[in-house]
Design a protein around this nucleic acid. Sequence first.
DNA 1: AAAACCATGTTAGATTTTCTGACATATCAT
DNA 2: ATGATATGTCAGAAAATCTAACATGGTTTT
Lengths: 135, 135
Amino acid sequence: MSGKEIRRSMPLFPIGTVMQLTELSARQIRYYEEHQLISPARNQGNRRLYSLNDIDRLLEIKDLIDQGVNMAGIKQIFLVKQQQEQTNNEQQQSEKAKRELTDDQLRHLLRNELMHSGRFNRSTLRQGDMSRFFH
Amino acid sequence: MSGKEIRRSMPLFPIGTVMQLTELSARQIRYYEEHQLISPARNQGNRRLYSLNDIDRLLEIKDLIDQGVNMAGIKQIFLVKQQQEQTNNEQQQSEKAKRELTDDQLRHLLRNELMHSGRFNRSTLRQGDMSRFFH
DNA sequence: AAAACCATGTTAGATTTTCTGACATATCAT
DNA sequence: ATGATATGTCAGAAAATCTAACATGGTTTT
């Protein structure tokens, strides 16, 4: 829920950039927002700011519209997808729980060794790396 | 030279976004441009548009300035880095050349098998995937 | 067929953002 | 003290965006 997600949901792009990236008109983009298919952030001056996720969503919308789906349809599709993700997460969750038990055992087994392997884990500090904002 | 690079050098961000991302003032960002440490694209209306690479560069600049390096110093550092990359590429190039010879042989060996393995390589068309613009 | 609805275009006026160029200023080296 | 460097700040102009309203060509519904 952190890391990647924070970055992909970071509000970065003004509507002009989004228009070019998606080849949608400002009118269309705002209209889809009106119908709650997206909800971009706003900056201090009330201008919309879109995230990578928003843009993905707009591309999906565009595609569905090309298939003849209307607003209501798209809204439902997104709902289903969201629920799908929800259950996916729950599955992962429970699987993870199982795994964690054995992981605990593993950790236990490894502990002694580590206690004697005086090795440091220096964190690599690289600078000027925009990738921290994405992926 | 294509793919990734095109994306990371795609002009996307207005100066306001870049200010937030880098915590530099507009004045600073323009000043560095004046000294040719960066050269953002311009849109039709003459507004600057920065790429991910530009932002990386600005973060690097910021860091160097924190270390007390001045414009001239930073310019030189970038020059050296660029040359470094150049020679790196050349090395890779010549290594690749070598490898390609053996690859040719490999291809040769595989050709017959492939000629008989009537298998199709359907390209996966996924939609609404912003990742095509990045990484 | 008429009326209503949907998705989008277009326009207008207000507000925000960005642009360039100029002048101001603090810090540092000479 | 003088000058250079890096940045702040201001002003006026141009561009981008905002909201709200009206216009319109296709679809449905009545």
